[in-house]
Design a binder for these strands. Structure first.
Lengths: 136, 136
DNA sequence: GCCGGACCTTCCCATCTTTGGAAGGTTATC
DNA sequence: GATAACCTTCCAAAGATGGGAAGGTCCGGC
């Protein structure tokens, strides 16, 4: 099948498939005499795997590792688990960061009248002056 | 003061200050006869504002809007509040996404022995086959 | 009056993962 | 043989920096 078909079947855009090939995440596809890339069912499966892993936030590089492990029958599940756990830790860090941002923003927005008046604790907060709390 | 001093006082790296100038987030600084950028206390204050807003996850473009509102004495606090609330909504979306990733990863890792054996529900999960649950 | 070191300047490249487009060749169908 | 729908490569953009090269400048000490 051509790249367009593989794209439709795997959910990975043709453009992105070419990119994955260019950075070595997936192997170079065979070509027809006229230069068209040719894919088989296995390739589509690999692309789906990549797609799922990416959607779970693994970097392209990490997906490369996962692919290697996927294909390596002698690998230990511990390696895979370690990768996944590192990913969970990344996510936790990111979530904590977002939670902190959110709390700060909420603190500021709750104190802002949000009307036609110009007084705005949000801007004061961003400016570094403590948000006014005189009316709390 | 020179850019290095402004950088130290604002917490924004010199390199980044130049970038902000180049994309129009902050105005072009005046120059000495020899071409050095010159900053005053107001500029440092602006940079701090930018720094705080960026650390709350506002994009450079959004910070531009906030800066405009900050300087506009006739603006309504409602405008600012709307921006901040949109930001909170962004954060909520992102956190929900991360939570979903996390749950999936955790579901898979919990089912993985994590030993020397190659069986690995994580890889099966990524491959699209439902993770085996025969030993649950 | 000059030297060293710390500062500044611009410019280009790298990051990361796509996505868009331009210019051009191919395949299939009418 | 025209037309549409594919495919190819290559270049550039996005966002927000960071790194480094090549070169000019400022200040203190001797």
């Amino acid at each position: 099948m051509n790249i367009g078909t593989a794209a439709r079947q795997s959910g990975v855009p043709a453009k992105t498939i070419r990119y994955y090939e260019s950075v070595g995440l997936i192997g170079a596809a065979e070509r027809t005499a006229s230069g068209y890339r040719v894919y088989g069912r296995d390739d589509v499966e690999t692309l789906r795997f990549v797609q799922r892993a990416r959607s779970l936030g693994f970097s392209v590089e990490a997906v490369g590792n996962l692919l290697t492990l996927w294909r390596d029958r002698s690998r230990s599940s511990a390696e895979v688990k370690a990768l996944a756990e590192r990913r969970v830790a990344d996510i936790d860090r990111k979530m904590a960061e977002l939670a902190e941002m959110r709390a700060t923003l909420l603190y500021l927005t709750e104190r802002c009248h949000g009307d036609a008046r110009p007084e705005c604790p949000i801007l004061l907060g961003l400016a570094g002056k403590a948000a006014a709390s005189d009316s709390d």
